[in-house]
Design a protein around this nucleic acid. Structure first.
Lengths: 197, 197, 197, 197
DNA sequence: GATGAATGAGTGTTCATTCAT
DNA sequence: CATGAATGAACACTCATTCAT
């Protein structure tokens, strides 16, 4: 026997989800600047007022959407993370995960890029978000200790190891570049060459 | 009889410059979204209507400002370019030029980043702009021919060789990272390792 | 079998009272214009929808609150009314009652002032409300008959005899005036001088 | 020969006046609460945006309108003020001026009453506005010195001497009272009786 | 009875742009 | 060339009210 507690919630979640998806979709289609609350509401088949039930204001809506995406991204990227594997294999795994995620969810990723270049970025606790990457940072540190990775500022390592994957999938920086498996492998090797001793 | 030697022209250029600078300043301070024509006009000590004398509309103002910055950037980056030097030295020169330019003109660079992540990007003829980088691309090609640089898609080379310098100077991706001379050298070596054979 | 002796009624009255008090408090604090149903509900720890159980609409809520206050005010003012006392003593008693009530319940009084200057006033049956003052009006009439009070329009008598007490306690008209016992006495004598023959 | 300097100004003043009048008219007709910027604009045959050319915001519009009216009122009330006349004659003159002004400009006066009972009152520098009444206050003081007026707080004198005229003309406090010449005289005598020794 | 969710219509305000001067 | 004034449309957001639960 199934008992439904607060069945109303189901409808609610649908609305929240619809708003979430509409936000991402619109930002992708018409950009951050042009994405007004009214348009988002229309896209989500919801009254503008409804958005203010779930979010304190537009800022809250955008920041929440961003954080939400970032968290999902982090999870995906760490899929199958195994610290017992050889250094380069761990990093390749993470790299490929990131590549795959971004390839599939171009819209999610595009939203985060636009968000990160907006004044709203300042409102996010980036340190908190980056905590999910700590396992990767630990791998970096161990690699440095073992003399396998260059002993440089960790931010430099991140820049050469992981940002390229973002640039690759960004149609702005790489318009017309096909994201083949071969490309993936080549790019990873370049990243590895950059950071390895 | 008095002859005025285009005294207006001088005032004009002052106005255009004032608008140009006001646009960049405002976008830096309050972001792309909040930078209205009225605010830009006020910042430039000019009437909103005046802006429409020099620019067709807001879009034109922003795109022009972008292209303008990009062109100045290209010039700076190619300062002292000498195709007779050894490959790595050429690239180092370009790299350091880029690093220097962005460090000094953080506001210009910040504008381009915000612009590039706005819907206005689509209006720019990027190919045209990238022509300025042709000398660098030629160097890449020759490096590949000579077997000194990896034989991969040129976009990949650009990503690993030059985008890191942008990420480094972006306080969003690298908050709290001091841009010392040592850092510059290390980073360039990493870039070189990524692309060299 | 369990019989509930209207246990809900108690809760109900609590709710009604809470709404009543919240309405007065909010109007005092943020004014008539800004006092929305949602805010009143929040102040009363009640759902907006609950208010519509007890009141037909916002108008009804405000008018009811007004009438309620006015009735309490009338009762207080007539406390210890004794038509057998000398004319001036009767009026002094009423005057002091009014003064006392308004001094103590500044928030109630402030609400009525704001209400009376809003479009809602038109909805109140003022004649009905003023019936409570009939004893006082009778005293006036008798005073006129006995040649002790000026034979003028009763509204004039009210204006000079009782409105000053309202103006005195209104911080808007009298900011910085301390409502001492001495002031009370002086003011009453002035009122008496105005209406006496 | 007539030279028109900035003839544009004429149109401007028309607009400002239209907005001013529309504000007063609307507040009279539908009340302070319901008088939105959009409605005022429509009544003035002007775009809502135009209002924001002349006034910083709604608050500014209302406060300016209030101060404007108050100043005109003060001027009218002091018409023919002559400190050499006998005390009672001076006061009678002021009283009649006030009565006349309010009778004629019921709409102006009604606006001030509604304004004064709104939260906006707090934004007005009342002391500054009341400075115009200083001549009257001086008369009061002299009357007290000469032993002709009760030696009480000046605010009390104002309340009994001048507020009644406001109450008389307020249809809320005095609905159905005809403002005849006879009434004026009677009322003034009552006011005089209240404050005279 | 009591409520959180939902909404169309409205709020005050700013927008990009035009126009008479 | 330069501008202050002007505006309809849009902005983010709140309103009074209803309804399913």
């Amino acid at each position: 026997m199934i008992i439904y507690f607060r069945p109303m919630r189901i409808r609610d979640e649908h609305k929240v989800d619809a708003i979430h998806e509409a936000t991402i979709k619109l930002v992708n289609e018409i950009g951050f600047v042009a994405s007004s609350v009214a348009k988002i509401a229309k896209e989500a088949n919801v009254s503008p007022a409804t958005i203010y039930i779930y979010y304190k204001n537009k800022e809250d809506l955008l920041v929440s959407t961003y954080v939400n995406i970032k968290q999902k991204m982090s999870q995906s990227i760490l899929t199958g993370f195994d610290s017992d594997l050889p250094l380069k294999d761990i990093l390749r795994r993470v790299w490929l995960n990131a590549f795959k995620y971004i390839s599939i969810h171009q819209d999610y990723f595009n939203f985060t890029e636009q968000f990160a270049n907006s004044p709203y970025t300042g409102l996010v606790n980036h340190e908190e978000l980056e905590k999910h990457f700590q396992p990767v940072m630990s791998v970096f540190l161990k690699g440095v200790e073992d003399g396998k990775i260059k002993s440089v500022n960790p931010q430099l390592l991140t820049i050469f190891a992981f940002y390229p994957v973002m640039l690759l999938s960004n149609s702005r920086t790489c318009h017309g570049l096909e994201l083949t498996d071969e490309l993936k492998d080549i790019a990873f090797e370049m990243a590895w060459d950059a950071i390895k001793v």
